[in-house]
């Protein structure tokens, strides 16, 4: 008989991102994502319709209340298209973050009973949100058709790059918040509040130039979602995003990912004792 693989269980001392293990358990990403999607659509009467209805209703609401005030500065785009093209990436972030933040507590039973790389849970939670967003894209296309607006050729790279940026941001923040939520249950109340605040710190319902005070505008640039939403919207002509802003958002997103994964991995081994 050949000697089987040998490894050691001991107190953890140094930091590793644990990528080899994530690759080894890669099928779990699929299974957790698939489970959450299945369960979500089995438990609700309207099922998939929710994914589509939610951004549409928000679009209608924002249009009713803000189109008069914001429209002139939204450029050539009709305000409903403008706000929906902000809401779609925003909802990827907000529902991804909410799911991921709660993922450790929601799966506490599993954490206490079986080992698998814990990072799979928040990442899968973000993948569920990504799936929802992709499902909503046909409706977005319908709205574009309705208003007779067509995206430019640059959509081919803007949209995927924006999605990558959002996923990085959401995974980073999600890992951080899920580890914190497990340790301090207060974060269950903090996260929804945080998401609400961030909505106003991101150019979703207003265009980037809307904020007049220079220092506030500069501060908001640090929010990686501001670059991501602008980039997503850059699929339309006249909705550019400048390279500096994008680079800053990218750097912030990576920083958030590093910080999130680092904190997560640092506290991960004690999750079972806390859950």
């Amino acid at each position: 008989m050949e000697e089987p693989a040998e490894y050691e269980i001991k107190p953890r001392t140094s930091f590793t991102p644990g990528i080899a293990e994530l690759v080894q358990y890669r099928e779990l990403f699929y299974f957790f994502t698939w489970r959450d999607i299945k369960v979500k659509y089995k438990q609700t009467v309207l099922g998939f319709a929710w994914t589509v209805l939610q951004p549409l209703l928000m679009m209608v609401l924002f249009t009713l209340f803000f189109s008069r005030a914001i429209s002139p500065s939204a450029g050539a785009l009709p305000y409903p298209v403008f706000v929906l093209s902000g809401l779609l990436p925003w909802m990827l972030f907000s529902s991804g973050l909410a799911n991921a933040g709660n993922s450790m507590v929601a799966n506490a039973n599993m954490i206490k009973k079986i080992y698998f790389p814990r990072l799979i849970l928040p990442i899968s939670a973000v993948l569920v949100a990504l799936f929802d967003m992709l499902m909503a894209l046909p409706v977005f296309a319908g709205v574009l058709l309705f208003y007779g607006v067509a995206p430019g050729w640059q959509a081919v790279w803007c949209v995927p790059l924006a999605l990558v940026l959002i996923v990085i941001t959401t995974v980073g923040a999600g890992c951080l918040l899920s580890a914190l939520t497990l340790k301090y249950r207060d974060f269950r109340y903090i996260i929804p509040f945080l998401i609400q605040i961030l909505l106003f710190a991101t150019p979703v319902i207003y265009p980037p130039g809307f904020v007049q005070q220079k220092w506030i505008a500069q501060l908001l640039m640090l929010n990686p979602m501001s670059g991501a939403v602008s980039l997503f919207r850059a699929m339309f002509h006249g909705q550019g995003v400048d390279a500096m802003h994008l680079a800053l958002s990218g750097a912030m997103a990576l920083l958030l990912l590093l910080a999130g994964v680092f904190y997560f991995r640092k506290t991960e081994s004690y999750f079972a004792d806390l859950a």
Binding site: P4, A5, E6, Y7, E8, I9, K10, P11, I111, I114
Partner: peptide
């Protein structure tokens, strides 16, 4: 500890095999 769910405070376990 053997299932890797929680780490020991000290000492180690050598495992040969899945």
């Amino acid at each position: 500890i053997l299932s890797k769910i929680t780490p020991p405070n000290s000492g180690s376990v050598r495992v040969r095999g899945r």
